[in-house]
């Protein structure tokens, strides 16, 4: 159960923005020793990361702060999940990849946020071709595929990924992210993606929304009716 009373969100936010790992760990430990639930820690983490993500969206915070905050939260959640004797969620089956480019920061940010949110996901890596992404997605029976890109030509190749997946019989939902999609807010639709993942917490919200849609949904990409942008 999430206990929102007296949650030190502002203090945690300050610790993350100052890359103060010690202070952030103290806040986590204090909540743990107070016998509060894991969901409370998760709520603190996601609420804070959401504020940081929003801060980047409106130009108040930098990408480096988003990245470092995600890494610290991921480290903390990794430490506390065993203490609470709970497991990472491995359903739906999620994977993340960088298409063609070797610049992996965006992928790492989303990976960290989802891990901090308790999701187990597969990192396919970076610099992957369309064929490699499709092959890995089919092999691992992925439900949700997160694709990060840096350059416009790579972003446009998402369309080919979606086409190939459908041809192979996969209904994996595709969430895209990265600079080209930020600079053209309609691009995700042009490449037939199912959603535009603007930042890590936004991607988590998309996944949660799809999860809540339950049995009727079953992660059939084309049926999503969510304008995530």
């Amino acid at each position: 159960m999430v206990e929102k009373r007296n949650l030190p969100i502002d203090d945690f936010l300050t610790a993350l923005l100052h890359i103060d790992r010690i202070k952030a760990a103290e806040i986590f430990e204090h909540i743990y020793k107070d016998d509060r639930s894991f969901e409370t820690l998760e709520h603190l983490t996601m609420e804070t990361l959401e504020r940081i993500g929003d801060g980047w969206e409106d130009g108040q915070l930098s990408l480096s702060q988003v990245y470092m905050s995600g890494i610290i939260c991921e480290e903390l959640i990794e430490q506390y999940i065993p203490k609470y004797k709970i497991a990472f969620k491995n359903k739906p089956q999620i994977a993340i990849a960088v298409l063609l480019d070797n610049h992996a920061l965006g992928k790492r940010i989303v990976y960290s946020v989802l891990r901090a949110g308790g999701y187990d996901l597969i990192d396919f890596g970076q610099g992957l071709s369309v064929e490699e992404v499709v092959e890995k997605t089919m092999k691992e029976k992925i439900d949700i595929l997160l694709i990060s890109t840096l350059m416009l030509p790579s972003a446009l190749k998402v369309k080919k990924v979606v086409e190939s997946l459908r041809k192979e019989g996969s209904s994996a939902s595709v969430v895209v992210g990265g600079a080209p999609f930020r600079l053209d807010s309609n691009l995700w639709q042009k490449v037939n993606a199912d959603a535009d993942g603007k930042n890590g917490t936004h991607v988590k919200e998309i996944i949660e929304k799809w999860e809540k849609e339950g049995k009727n949904h079953e992660f059939h990409g084309a049926s999503h009716n969510i304008n995530e942008s």
């Binding site: 063609l100 070797n102 610099g127």
Partner: peptide
């Protein structure tokens, strides 16, 4: 350096 057919050449592995 990685060349593509329809975009700027990109850096490979650091």
């Amino acid at each position: 350096v990685v060349f593509v057919e329809d975009g700027p050449p990109n850096s490979g592995e650091p």
